[in-house]
Amino acid sequence: MLELRLVQGSLLKKVLESIKDLVNDANFDCSATGFSLQAMDSSHVALVALLLRSEGFEHYRCDRNISMGMNLGNMAKMLKCAGNDDIITLKADDGSDTVTFMFESPTQDKIADFEMRLMDIDSEHLGIPEAEYHAILIMPSAEFARICKDLSSIGDTVVISVTKEGVKFSTRGDIGTANVVCRQNTTVDKPEEATVIEMPEPVSLTFALRYLNSFTKATPLSNTVTISLSSEIPVVVEYKIAEMGYIRFYLAPKIEE
């Protein structure tokens, strides 16, 4: 028996909107720790790892570890039917091949339930090795989204270079080139507006903007984004989900030939 009640149902709606275009089908894993997902895109270039900790749910009942295969497009369709203020409850009986999403309006005057068929998904669970990152960049998530969007109108790839001076996002395309430099800026009114560069070593990596733009669909989940870079290993783009966990995107770099 599984029953997860999330008062801030909009979080789950936002999570689905941020991953449904990157991954088609995925297994949601439910354990005492929380509700989690790990899935790669079909080309094995990007991976998404989600954790919503059990403490973040108003009610969390998961009698035994369960893995539920879902089509994320269909799940997003169902969650779109929940209001932004609705409380969302996920329910599944042992051995059932369906999951039920229950939406309650905040005043309890409207209750809806949507039942979705589960699917069998063969997915490999990948071990993500602990990595030491050369540079960790924390910046407003809306600023990062703006940069990725702007640069993708000029080129297909971005070079992210971190130096003592700051972080530089560069692209080139048929019509020209573009460079955006963000300097460390911690003298702001609100901490979430700061740009912080933790930089033990300079690093420069190239990534496909198409994927980074896809990751920025998670922007509504968090005011800030944390980007961890190290030479020749995947970048991690992390959006923290307040009091609940995180959504992390891993992206393999482009390699010079």
């Binding site: 094995h44 991976l47 990948l126 071990g127 090795p129 496909a208 290993i233 482009k254 390699i255």
Partner: peptide, 14 residues
Amino acid sequence: SSRQSTLDKFFQNS
């Protein structure tokens, strides 16, 4: 020119 790498060589099956 640059080539897109994949995640397979970075992450192991667990």
